[in-house]
């Protein structure tokens, strides 16, 4: 089943929700999903008789770094509209078809439902996205840092584009 057909099924099933088909990219096309519908959509994709996306191949956080300059009333320039994204790469072992989802979250409040209850393997992937980007996955059973030490500085997320390496960690100098 092609992504376009899957999208049609989704549109019929969730008439109130918005789905954007993003295929300007040359290799892979994405369906952008509204964050609040994500969990329902994922359950539907997994359980629907002729879709059966039983594996989550990959889940990755991305810092889109797409802030634009906006002038407020007093004429001061400030950056707004920066988003963090989460990409979900789904695959069905039974039918051997793929489907790629994306949600975009504002950087001020990067919160999205966890899909750990749908696919078990999302657990560590989501912890990694939290660790590296600070994306909060709601209702995740154990959302703590995974790769970095547990006492790493709060609010310091290394894969964000504006990350700066701290000078010291526990008395050890970090820069060369």
């Amino acid at each position: 089943m092609t992504p376009e057909e899957t999208l049609e099924i989704l549109k019929n099933k969730f008439p109130d929700s918005e789905f954007t088909y993003d295929n300007e990219l040359p290799v892979d096309a994405y369906i952008i999903v509204n964050p609040k519908d994500l969990l329902d959509v994922c359950f539907f994709l997994r359980d629907e008789e002729n879709l059966q996306f039983d594996t989550l191949m990959n889940l990755s956080g991305v810092d889109d770094n797409n802030a634009t300059k906006v002038k407020d009333e007093e004429g001061n320039e400030k950056l707004e509209g920066r988003t963090l994204s989460v990409y979900y790469h789904l695959h069905s072992m039974k039918f051997d078809h793929k489907f790629y989802l994306k949600v975009s979250l504002p950087i001020e409040k990067p919160e999205v439902e966890s899909v750990e209850s749908v696919w078990k393997c999302a657990d560590w992937h989501e912890r990694e996205a939290y660790d590296m980007f600070g994306i909060i996955f709601l209702n995740h059973p154990n959302l703590i840092r995974i790769l970095l030490p547990y006492d790493w500085e709060d609010g310091s997320y290394p894969l964000r584009k504006d990350f700066e390496t701290p000078e010291f960690y526990n008395g050890m100098k970090i820069p060369y």
């Binding site: 790769l147 970095l148 290394p158 990350f163 390496t165 701290p166 050890m172 100098k173 970090i174 820069p175 060369y176």
Partner: peptide, 20 residues
């Protein structure tokens, strides 16, 4: 010895065990 290929961008790499 010194951080090797991770010397520049390795935010989580100790640049040489002789620091410890």
């Amino acid at each position: 010895n010194c951080g090797g290929p991770y010397w520049e961008h390795g935010y989580h790499v100790l640049k040489g065990i002789d620091r410890v």
